[in-house]
Design a protein around this nucleic acid. Structure first.
Ligand code: ZN
Ligand code: ZN
Ligand code: ZN
Ligand code: ZN
Lengths: 171, 171
DNA sequence: TTTTGTTATGTTATATTATAACATTATATC
DNA sequence: GATATAATGTTATAATATAACATAACAAAA
């Protein structure tokens, strides 16, 4: 089944972050920042210093990060950082799809592919805390299928699968 | 496909709550309370007055209810209600699976079938606020399938699909 | 049936997450 | 440069949740 193979390929790519040294995270960050610059430029959105910095901080790891964690760091960098400082930046980034909010953690994580609008779907490791964004046609079909059957029109979807990543199971 | 038909049947049942006069909610509550009594008895858990009352309040509707909403009601009934009063009761009910927590709303809703352990999966209407618990083999398979492919072992799953229910679309 | 251990609740305080409201500053457009 | 708009600064507070320790209720043992 062609779709199955493609899903698996995407999956392997998206879970690379679970492995120690499984990927070059410096590149991860660079790529995310470049994408953000381009996307903002295309959309006529202003990626200000503050917003850029918050995005950078969110991308420091693949572990979702809380607003007040970000605020603590910002406070060391700008004398005036307050909750609205970080929440406004997060709102901006959320609106553009540059980050996702993990509802079950009250935390924020960078988005893999902000160019195209898509649901928020994650595998989240209890041990290492990393969150891997997943895109899977089976899952998409299952959800749109059951919504159709129910006559329910979808506006937003949240899928958060919590467990143990392959790396943390090994240990 | 046999499974598809069964899914649809379950779905029709579980979304009945979206329809005005689509079901007898008094029975809903009675059934939930009976199930709770039985389940607690079987598990040797103490369904105290407080816990029973909180469960009753949660079941007053199919709209997920916030902890402080519950607290406001409790305060009218017992002089000493405080946040821990309601959070402890909620924790007890969550642990037994008698209620679910809706992460995207910070709110709580009664569980359809607390007898068997199952993931938290909901269709949530933006307009009327009702949350319909869904169980769907396609969805189950999609999620366990992709977790398997990723070598990820699932501990807990949250699926929250937000949108418009059939009844609210009509209006 | 007192004793004793355990579970549940009361009580006070505080932590964590998020927003409201209004003032000021920076940026873009005319 | 004047003006409108968007972004940030600033103060205060709302909303959600937990910590910590005291008392009360309950259940099993002695
Ligand atoms: Zn990375
Ligand atoms: Zn891990
Ligand atoms: Zn009902
Ligand atoms: Zn509705």
């Amino acid at each position: 089944m062609q779709v199955g193979i493609q899903n698996r390929r995407q999956l392997v790519e998206s879970i690379a972050l679970f492995k120690k040294d499984g990927h070059n995270h410096g590149r991860c960050i660079d790529s995310a920042m470049n994408t953000a610059v381009n996307l903002c430029s295309r959309r006529g959105a202003r990626l200000t210093d503050l917003r850029r910095r918050v995005l950078e901080l969110v991308w420091q790891s693949h572990q979702p990060v809380g607003a007040y964690e970000l605020l603590d760091i910002l406070k060391d960098e700008r004398r005036n950082a307050q909750p609205p400082t970080v929440y406004r930046a997060l709102d901006f980034l959320l609106e553009l799809g540059l980050i996702h909010r993990i509802e079950s953690l009250n935390a924020y994580v960078g988005c893999n592919s902000p160019d195209t609008s898509h649901p928020s779907q994650f595998l989240i490791c209890r041990d290492c805390g990393a969150a891997a964004e997943i895109s899977d046609t089976r899952l998409d079909r299952a959800i749109s299928g059951l919504a159709d059957d129910a006559g329910f029109s979808i506006v937003r979807r949240t899928v958060e699968v919590e467990g143990q990543c392959p790396n943390c199971q090994a240990g």
